[in-house]
Simulated scan of single mutants.
Amino acid sequence: MQCDYFDAGVCRSCTQIRVPYATQLESKDADAKALLHEHAQLRWLSPVASKESAFRNKAKIVVSGTHQNPVLGILNREGNGVDLSECPLYTFDILALMPVLRELIQRASLTPYSVPARKGELKNILVTASPSGELMLRFVLRSKKLLVPIRREISWLQQRNPAISVVSINLLREHKAVVEGGEEIILTEQQTLPMQVNGMDLHLRPQSFFQTNTAIAEALYAQGAQWVADAAPHTLWDLYCGVGGFALHSAQALPDASITGIEISEEAIASAQRTVDEKGLDNLTFIAQDATTFAVDAQELPECVVVNPPRRGIGEQLAQWLEHSGIQTVVYSSCNARSLVKDLEKMPSLKPVEGRVFDMFPHTNHYEVAVLLQRA
């Protein structure tokens, strides 16, 4: 893929961009197989390829410069802004929004935050785009000083880009190297972004997690649903369920099964429950709780478990619980194959029998891998 920013040396995030895409995919598939080589019984399905460009449904835009001449992109090592407003990874809906954001900053005098000087208000703008073209727009501010000017411009924003459905303010008061803070103020009547995935809407609230590559997320959820349908359990847990991707797909694949989704984020659970209500899925329950605590304290066990943990993996306590639980089938979706390998070492009775690489992150060394585990 051609990228002028990479060629100019201003952004090096896509470390593999000069490697032909077919070679990238082969390399990721080979890496997963090498990491799991001790599992001789593991059968690998063909890796799932991504589009090479316009696949990224999220933009995490650092705002720098001045309100008269804002820079939308990233910061270099010195803390100065680098424009990435035409990054070819972004969906076309996000790219079309960039001039509108620049005009808004100028129009409303939204003072960018200067990291070196620790002055200013507008730190980041976070954008999420759905397959239907709807947009969620979040302004990360140092304080509430710009809340009224931004609220005043929402009508103008939506006139300039009618796809903007959700607008919120996120407060990051501290000078910290993080993208957002914990406090969110939604400014629009619509509070969730419908993300269309395999024919259903997953409702994203401002702080809900969703994968950055919608098409690959669809393939990942479909694969998980196929594996659990083949296992045909009567009961299933989806641990670290987020907004319910695996649980919702499993509920459709197993209409007679009892399914429970567990996620520590109350916002994510509220989003998942809205999809349940819309789809009329009476076999699915969502609970806001820590996944490990829920499992360890449970009095009754399911026949099947799906886990989709963060990069660190499920950890020793949950791995040991799964090892001794007697549960026959586990679907493990991992964004870090190395933590997956460490977790599998703690679960020797659960053997990976089928696996697949999903290229969620083209032009980097990162990928998603899912494995079907069955008790020996």
Rank of each mutant, 00 (worst) to 15 (best):
S265D: 01
S265M: 06
D256G: 11
N198V: 04
V178I: 14
I185W: 11
R173N: 12
A253F: 13
L193R: 12
I262T: 05
G182E: 08
F246E: 01
I259H: 01
V179T: 15
G261Q: 02
P194A: 02
E183R: 07
M195N: 04
Q159Y: 08
A219Q: 03
V178M: 10
A222D: 14
W227H: 15
M195T: 03
A232K: 15
I259A: 08
N198K: 09
L220P: 11
D256Y: 10
E174A: 09
G261R: 04
H234Y: 03
P233C: 03
I185N: 02
I185F: 09
V178P: 05
L187H: 00
D201A: 13
G181P: 14
A232T: 13
G182H: 11
Q226K: 15
S265A: 02
E263D: 04
S168D: 14
G244W: 00
A225P: 09
E180I: 08
I216V: 03
M195Q: 14
A215E: 15
C241L: 01
L239G: 07
Y240T: 07
D230R: 12
A268D: 09
I264M: 01
S168G: 07
P206W: 05
P233T: 03
S265H: 03
L248F: 04
L254M: 04
V179A: 15
A225Y: 13
A257N: 06
L204E: 05
H203M: 02
T214R: 06
P255C: 09
E263V: 01
Q223P: 01
E267R: 08
D201G: 06
P194Q: 00
N161S: 11
I164N: 13
R205H: 06
Q211Y: 10
L157P: 07
E189G: 13
I264Q: 02
D238L: 00
G244T: 05
L172I: 00
F246A: 02
A232V: 10
L220M: 15
L254D: 12
D201W: 06
H203W: 13
E180Y: 10
R160N: 08
Q226E: 10
Y221Q: 02
V179S: 14
A215D: 13
A163F: 07
V243S: 06
